[in-house]
Nucleic acid binder design. Structure first.
Lengths: 252, 252
DNA sequence: TTAATTTGTTCTCTATTGTAGAACGTCGTT
DNA sequence: AACGACGTTCTACAATAGAGAACAAATTAA
């Protein structure tokens, strides 16, 4: 998933891999992790004890199992603080949400995925309780993902779609050649579409946000039930997204 | 700040300390970090390269300086996912926010600080753009902090106030004996007060949320400008907070 | 323009330290 | 009572993290 050609401290890499196990399941035991990663129990134990002492992992005194600790929150807050794209985009996202009355997402690329940074709900709509902030999706099946891919160089793009194209719904594009055509079509029309490729019944429109050098900085998308995503509304959404993406780009 | 008696992997501890530098300032250079922590540049460089390869740190190709990377978001999301207190408390927090029309916070203790997990804004009020989620404050000067301290054992409590009591406003309690009295008063009355001790013009009321064993699990608080925080309203807020804290506690 | 300073980066050697492997104590289960 | 699964502890060896200097690139000063 990550290029590890530049890993200098193997123990740190290993430790982070241990930590990342918790993103898939919580709580986890020492044995469980050691089996998953092929490490020795004592090794995993030492890593977990260190993380625990630093607040990145907590141990349930009853079961002895581990889960992530509070300290990760402080990091994520600092990350968002330091990222000016979020600061700049947030007020615009609110305007978009109120204008179109649908969910608006800001996401940024990481490897072959997009990570959701912010999600804004229109004022009148009840906020869904499960926040997607920090969640990630594969690029090849999302609207922003395809919008971003269409702005990449051919090599970058290929690197992002080299893995297996897993089908999440019957609409997911799993054929690599089809996908390349779709990305090319995305590039030409200037926005990405997700036609229920991630979740049945949900469609999305997304555009890429480029910085002054033309490099992809982030992505902006609108998500809605397919019933509210007819061709006319899609065009309306696209127009709004492109307008605001332009405004944001000017400020980067 | 953290007990490091149980640190088994020194290089990991060191690496995390490097990572934590970014919570104070971003971006940071190799030299800057090495000076701050008293480490060698090559050491810091190796650490940063490894973090970069894993996505926890990003390097600006222009300046060569570093900032936090996207991967920390995935961790924080997993943390919040795994923490059922947030899942349970969130819908109640919405009710509170709409009932009282003020800002409602959920926070959890970490060392001598409280970390803000969730912040809910009343429907009619515009959400402030800067999210405090992940931010932390010292216990001794916040309403939740004092509510939590008042539920701790004397030893735990002392450990949390052993540092210097920094004054953030002229109202901050900086005398340790005064603070002990205030915490005792908090314990008796059942809720904590922050009388502009963190920020001038802002008052808070807070209560602790205990689990079935009576251990502090989290804290709930309401924050508002002091003009909207007269004695009658404080009593109203306290009543609401205690009612909902009770509901949440039953579900833990 | 050139010199001086500061930056991130690279290198090498070796003492540190992470870790394999087994053994231990403690649960809940059979 | 015996088992199995768990988190934990221990030790000895070898891998490797890190000190320290030297590097190149970039910035500033003269």
């Amino acid at each position: 998933m990550q290029k590890d050609g530049e890993v200098k401290i193997k123990s740190l890499k290993k430790s982070l891999e241990v930590l990342e196990c918790f993103t898939q399941k919580q709580p986890l035991g020492v044995t469980e992790i050691s089996e998953k990663l092929g490490l020795y129990k004592s090794n995993v134990h030492n890593i977990l004890m260190t993380f625990t002492a630093m607040g990145y992992v907590e141990q349930d005194p009853e079961s002895g199992k581990f889960r992530l600790g509070v300290s990760v929150m402080t990091l994520s807050r600092a990350f968002r603080e330091g990222l000016n794209i979020a600061k700049i985009a947030l007020p615009f996202m609110r305007e978009i949400a109120n204008e179109v009355g649908e969910l608006v997402y800001l996401s940024i690329p990481r490897g072959d995925e997009v990570v959701y940074l912010e999600a804004i709900y229109p004022d009148n709509q009840r906020m869904v309780s499960k926040s997607v902030i920090g969640e990630c999706s594969k690029m090849y099946c999302t609207s922003v993902g395809k919008a971003i891919l269409s702005q990449f160089s051919p090599e970058e793009m290929e690197r992002c779609i080299e893995g297996k194209l897993e089908a999440f719904t019957e609409y997911t594009i799993t054929d690599k050649e089809k996908l390349r055509e779709e990305i090319e079509a995305t590039r030409i029309r200037g926005y990405g579409l997700d036609n229920m490729e991630v979740m049945f019944g949900i469609k999305c429109v997304g555009v890429a946000i480029l910085n002054y050098e033309g490099k992809v900085e982030a992505g902006l998308s609108i998500s809605a039930p397919s019933l509210r995503m007819g061709e006319e509304r899609i065009q309306e959404f696209v127009k709004v997204l492109q307008t605001y993406a332009g405004k944001i780009q000017k400020m980067l």
